[in-house]
Design a protein around this nucleic acid. Structure first.
Lengths: 161, 161
DNA sequence: AGTGAAACTTCCGCCGT
DNA sequence: ACGGCGGAAGTTTCACT
């Protein structure tokens, strides 16, 4: 699963624009079409490339407001977590969900059109599962958002300087 | 910029899998290739579809740890924000960055391999810009992450039931 | 592992409804 | 706006170095 310099270049390009033809990617990384195609294929099989998706403009689809919701709970067992997780899966407004260390137990990012819609979401959420301590923090604006992960930390194959 | 039922179906499919051929999308939404292709084209021109990207597995590219970094500041002017924003842009580890309301002024999501790498990031960050009050919260696990935005709130065209 | 080209699939503009 | 057709372009396999 080690990636060499060329693999990382390919991934950098695909993280920016997944519509780029394999031939052009090959040209940019100094490879002809076939080996470049095989590398991409392999990274898909290995699950390094999970999927290719369309990224939409949040404002234009009317979910310009992000709310971070922190949850504290007394239920620290695995089955409760799974139940919670199942409930969250039913809410497409929740786009990210993390189990945290520290004083907050769970953190989620919720996208909605406005404060009113958030209130509706909140009521629907607490009706589905009992949550003791919930606090919401509203984002006034998204300054940076990228799906591109940094590749500087990826395991580098030995024979690659 | 109003979207009808078919447009929303198309977007749902493309948010899941952007490699799906236009002919197949058309079939699924009850349209032939050409009009379906034209709708997608239009939504790209309108900027509703921003881009198509490859989504990578964070663990497999060695950035399995997410840290949420909260920043409070005394500098509440626009030029300072722009400077901060410029600094953040230089850090690929910061994948999301929000201006917040409430007691925290800024919130960012940072992805790194481990705590040690976060410490390195943190030192590099504070060396670039003076930050008074910074606090970090570590995620123990990502339970849900999707790039797909909910389309239930999108503006619906009048002649669409 | 790399190249080149052939076979197949998909895209995308043109024209008609 | 929707649909069909056809050339252009991209993808994927194959034979060879």
């Amino acid at each position: 699963m080690a990636l060499d310099k060329i693999d990382r270049k390919i991934l950098t390009l695909l993280q920016r624009d997944a519509t780029m033809p394999v031939a052009e990617i090959g040209r940019k990384v100094g490879l002809s079409t076939t080996p470049c195609w095989r590398r991409i294929q392999k990274m898909e099989e290995d699950g390094i490339i999970q999927r290719r998706v369309a990224v939409l403009d949040p404002v234009k689809v009317n979910v310009g407001v992000t709310v971070f919701v922190s949850v504290k709970t007394n239920e620290h067992n695995d089955s409760w977590m799974r139940k919670f997780s199942g409930v969250i899966d039913e809410f497409p407004e929740v786009v990210e969900f993390y189990r945290m260390s520290g004083d907050v137990d769970y953190l989620m990012r919720v996208v909605v059109p406005d404060i009113g819609a958030y209130d509706t979401f909140y009521k629907r959420l607490i009706s589905k599962i009992n949550l003791t301590d919930v606090s919401s923090a509203f984002a006034m604006g998204q300054i940076k958002y990228t799906t591109a992960l940094p590749l500087d930390f990826a395991i580098i194959s030995d024979d690659d300087k």
